[in-house]
């Protein structure tokens, strides 16, 4: 008998990574990268990702990161050479700079695709790999034309544009050759934006009234400024947390693979806002040293609010992805800051 499923099973994602353990791993890998003049950074990236993936368990099974350090190193070297050439040449001669900027513009959709594709194909769950099947034309439409539309409508269409972009990415991710299906609706994005804007408006008025009163009481305006500055940081964090948790819950609720998997998320704005604010605070008081701790805290929280339902069809999946790819696209996308964080 195999441990197949006759019915579906639902459970939260189990993230088992520990702050202390990851802190040590992260710092030692950074140290080794430095003393090897960056060469070890490829190994560091693989170990780092393997740690985070391996400690992410769904239905008792871990994710695996399959990229090899040599693959990453080669991609990284080529990407750095291209990046340095671009920076130097575009500074020296404006005409070469223009040509290279145009070239980068043309290559950008390809870099985006290669970047997502590589990280998906190097991700496996139960020995079956993910992939990304976006096309050059599709990326042009979703990452160039739609954002322009959003701008010329004075951001009125922007929530719809963002919904379309996220839907496009997720719809083109495959697992075992089966497409994820994202059925998000733009109206939910508009609701999320309106709620966040409402919070900013109401909070803004309250803060202005409070700080207006304290401003009048104090002769030196710069001292009283600290109240509204802190107030607005708090306000924007809460509004951002409301928007992000609303959209995250909606995206996961409408994401599925037929008869394989579906999701449900219960991210709540206040705990999420508290997490984000304490993360920023931690980074400030430790002068950035707490970065690995922040990553673990965030991953643990997101896992703890995300429910995955495994369906019987998962036992019948066949891996469709073989071999290893070039890591150039992903590395270049990282350097040119065009890599996207998914979901």
């Amino acid at each position: 008998m195999e441990n197949g499923l006759s019915t579906e099973r639902t459970d939260f994602i189990n993230f088992t990574g520990k702050s202390g353990e990851y802190f040590k791993l992260w710092f030692v890998n950074m140290f080794l990268s430095i003393i090897t003049l960056g060469i070890y950074s490829a190994w560091a990236k693989v170990r780092d990702t393997q740690y985070l993936y391996g400690h992410t368990q769904v239905d008792g099974q871990s994710f695996r990161y399959l990229a090899s350090p040599m693959q990453i190193l080669k991609g990284r070297i080529v990407a750095v050479i291209v990046f340095v050439l671009y920076m130097v040449l575009s500074q020296i001669n404006p005409i070469i700079g223009l040509v290279m900027a145009l070239g980068l513009l043309v290559a950008m959709p390809w870099l985006i695709i290669q970047g997502i594709k590589f990280s998906m194909r190097m991700t496996a769950y139960r020995n079956v790999r993910f992939s990304f099947e976006g096309t050059y034309g599709g990326v042009i439409v979703h990452f160039v034309l739609l954002p322009i539309l959003g701008l010329i409508t004075f951001y009125l269409a922007m929530p719809w544009v963002i919904q379309q972009i996220q839907q496009y990415i997720n719809n083109n991710i495959t697992y075992g050759g089966k497409h994820f299906e994202q059925n998000s609706s733009a109206s939910q994005y508009y609701i999320a934006v309106l709620i966040s804007l409402g919070i900013v408006l109401v909070g803004g008025v309250v803060i202005s009234m409070i700080s207006g009163a304290s401003l009048a009481a104090v002769a030196e305006p710069s001292a009283a400024l600290i109240v509204p500055i802190l107030g607005f940081i708090l306000l924007f964090s809460i509004a951002a947390a409301v928007y992000q948790s609303f959209i995250y819950n909606h995206l996961l609720a409408t994401l599925s693979i037929d008869n394989v998997v579906s999701f449900n998320a219960e991210m709540k704005p206040v705990p999420f806002a508290v997490l984000m604010l304490t993360n920023i605070l931690l980074l400030i008081v430790t002068l950035g040293l707490a970065l690995p701790v922040v990553k673990i805290r965030t991953a643990r929280y997101i896992a703890s609010v995300t429910e995955v339902t495994i369906k019987p069809g998962i036992d019948a999946l066949i891996n469709t992805i073989e071999g290893s790819d070039s890591a150039f696209g992903e590395e270049a996308a990282g350097l040119f800051d065009t890599d996207l964080s998914l979901v």
Binding site: E2, V128, D315, A316, L317, I318, N319
Partner: peptide
Amino acid sequence: QLAGCSKSY
């Protein structure tokens, strides 16, 4: 975990 498919024992 079997090769090339999602079955495991």
